[in-house]
């Protein structure tokens, strides 16, 4: 074979492999495999929306993550539009420094019946306490009483071993499921392959 022909043929094969591979990857079934589905929803996870809904959105988030904050009202709005058929399961992926403690605060607030209130207030002031590089979670103590959370009780509850166990379980599940960025969404076990608000909405609609 002539050298030039060999080079061009190889180039062609390589590009073809790339394009073909992309096509196959995009059309492949990326659903969470059955042995891993238990890692998606745990009984301890907070559920928003109709608990018996047939479509389940699982969101892994980090309270210090800006993109998670911007997705929160968006997902909540979709939930509002489909109150009977959708539920959102909130899971933690505390990847940022000190996010573990922020998650513990949210879980402790849950014991006071103020889960969403705590989460929303923490998101609301995210710019203040999670300014880039140097999170200052001490500031959160000042924001939580705004929604009627008792800080002394909260500080005691945060130390509870079941909260620690819950967070560790969520972290272990992020590893099992290969969650390496936040927010990560799974709709009925199908991950969001291409990230984006429109893509998420499309995925949810296809599963409704």
């Amino acid at each position: 074979m002539k050298k030039q022909t060999l080079i061009i043929a190889s180039l062609f094969v390589l590009v073809l492999l790339f394009v073909g591979g992309s096509y196959l990857y995009k059309n492949a079934d990326h659903s969470v495999s059955s042995e891993k589905t238990s890692a998606l929803v745990r009984p301890h996870a907070y559920v928003l929306g109709n608990p018996n809904a047939k479509t389940t959105i699982v969101e892994f988030f980090d309270p210090a993550c800006g993109t998670c904050k911007s997705f929160y009202p968006f997902v909540k709005n979709i939930l509002k539009q489909n109150p009977d058929t959708l539920k959102l399961v909130l899971r933690y992926a505390p990847f940022h420094t000190d996010s573990y403690y922020v998650v513990a605060m949210i879980e402790a607030a849950r014991l006071q019946g103020k889960y969403l209130e705590a989460l929303e207030v923490i998101y609301k002031y995210q710019d203040k306490w999670a300014s880039h590089g140097t999170p200052n979670i001490g500031l959160i103590w000042g924001f939580l009483p705004e929604v009627g959370i008792d800080i002394d009780t909260l500080k005691n509850d945060m130390k509870k071993p079941e909260i620690d166990a819950l967070i560790k379980q969520d972290i272990a599940d992020t590893k099992t499921l290969g969650v390496n960025a936040t927010p990560e969404f799974f709709v009925n076990g199908k991950p969001l392959v291409k990230f984006g608000k429109q893509e998420l909405e499309d995925l949810i609609k296809s599963e409704l």
């Binding site: 190889s10 390589l14 790339f18 591979g21 992309s22 990857y25 995009k26």
Partner: peptide, 18 residues
Amino acid sequence: IVSMVATLGSLFFSEIMM
């Protein structure tokens, strides 16, 4: 060939597998 596989492979990881 090695450099092509590495180039296309890394592009596959970042652009296709995100």
